[in-house]
């Protein structure tokens, strides 16, 4: 089953979820590592280039994910989830969409601060739109880093909550996101 139903996620949603999750974790680790590289490190130029390219592609993937989410039925929360859990989960999910977008926009504003485009591998480049604001690269850099840490923190809470549902509550919350089912 590719599409979502009111009781479960389809394969497209599941694949996009895990793709975005692993790419975000990877970009976070890459970002931390590459900012400490020194001038003569062989990765000094390549690592940021990959980070930026993958970041732009991730942005597109998240837009695709949102489009898919809005054009599909929304699986309803499991009946054993309490109202406060449902509300909290809903707002966490909203933030888990919003934060990556904000992190990526701020990252884009670092690279384009002096009007240069962002290159996505050798495939295409995204032109600068907003540039030349005083010390834009520094301000955008601060925001990029702080929001990235908040995002990873929130994603960790999200993952712990899923594990709690799986191992303690023993419900289908996590399994719904691992396998598409028709029932």
């Amino acid at each position: 089953m590719l599409r979502n139903t009111s009781t479960g996620y389809g394969w497209i949603s599941i694949l996009l979820h895990w793709l975005v999750a692993f790419v975000i974790i990877g970009l976070f680790a890459l970002g931390l590592w590459m900012t400490d590289l020194t001038y003569y490190d062989p990765w000094y130029r390549e690592a940021p280039a990959i980070h930026k390219s993958v970041g732009i592609l991730l942005f597109l993937a998240i837009l695709l994910r949102l489009a898919w989410r809005w054009s599909n039925p929304r699986p309803v929360p499991l009946s054993n989830h309490k109202p406060w859990e449902q509300r909290l989960a809903h707002w966490t999910h909203v933030m888990l969409y919003a934060l990556p977008l904000l992190v990526m926009v701020s990252g884009y504003l670092i690279s384009t601060a002096e009007g240069r485009p962002v290159e996505v591998f050798d495939w295409f480049s995204v032109p600068a739109t907003f540039s030349g604001y005083e010390q834009q690269e520094d301000i955008a850099g601060e925001i990029h880093e702080i929001l990235a840490f908040i995002l990873i923190g929130l994603a960790s809470v999200h993952a712990l909550a899923a594990l709690k549902h799986h191992f303690i509550d023993r419900d289908r919350t996590l399994r719904r996101m691992l396998r598409s089912r028709t029932d």
């Binding site: 940021p48 670092i110 690279s111 384009t112 601060a113 002096e114 240069r116 010390q135 834009q136 690269e137 520094d138 850099g141």
Partner: peptide, 16 residues
């Protein structure tokens, strides 16, 4: 010192 400008945003950020 923050007004350093080498015509490359990421390098300027690094220099600061």
């Amino acid at each position: 010192t923050a007004s350093i400008d080498s015509n490359h945003a990421e390098r300027d950020k690094h220099l600061r």
